[in-house]
Amino acid sequence: MSAAKARPAAPLKTVDAATRTRRLVIRGVLLALYLGLMVLMIFTGRRHTILIDNKDTTDGSYEAINGMEVSIDRQEPSEYWPGDRDKAIVQGQRHTIKVSVFDDGTEVAKSFTVPLWTDIVIISVPKMLKGIEPWVEPFTMAQQIEEAQSQPALEGMSYQSDGPAAPAAGEPGAPQPPSP
């Protein structure tokens, strides 16, 4: 710090009001851009799981489709038979679903939006084909657990490994095997 004092004071530039505001504006814009980029990454990068469901309902308002092919965006299409449910993982919020029914050969393509902070949505294809709204519904963990009790659980939902609570000491003497 003493060295800083010893240095001859830098010539003070007289900054007039105009440049000062201009600087402030530029900095503000840069900050906004930075935050904007972060928000953009959240919107484009958010990952959602879409469950595609082909089941009857109890009240008989719609019935499972007897064989169809469904694809989300440009992903590989897969076949669904009554009672099937599968998932697709997507990034971003706007997506299209393409359905081609085997029985009558109808092809339907619809686009839908996943709410930004919803991790999982469920699409009921029979509902969608019948035009019953809403055919896209958020799917919560609680629902999932509820359903898991009545049927085999969906695999791949909890993927974080469990670990002991205490972290390792920060001392250097016990080197981990080098992460290769």
């Binding site: 980029l37 972060m38 959240i42 990068g45 958010r46 990952r47 959602h48």
Partner: peptide, 11 residues
């Protein structure tokens, strides 16, 4: 936040 892919890295 569940941000995937290179967007996640940039974030």
């Amino acid at each position: 936040f569940g941000i995937a892919n290179w967007q996640g890295l940039l974030f």
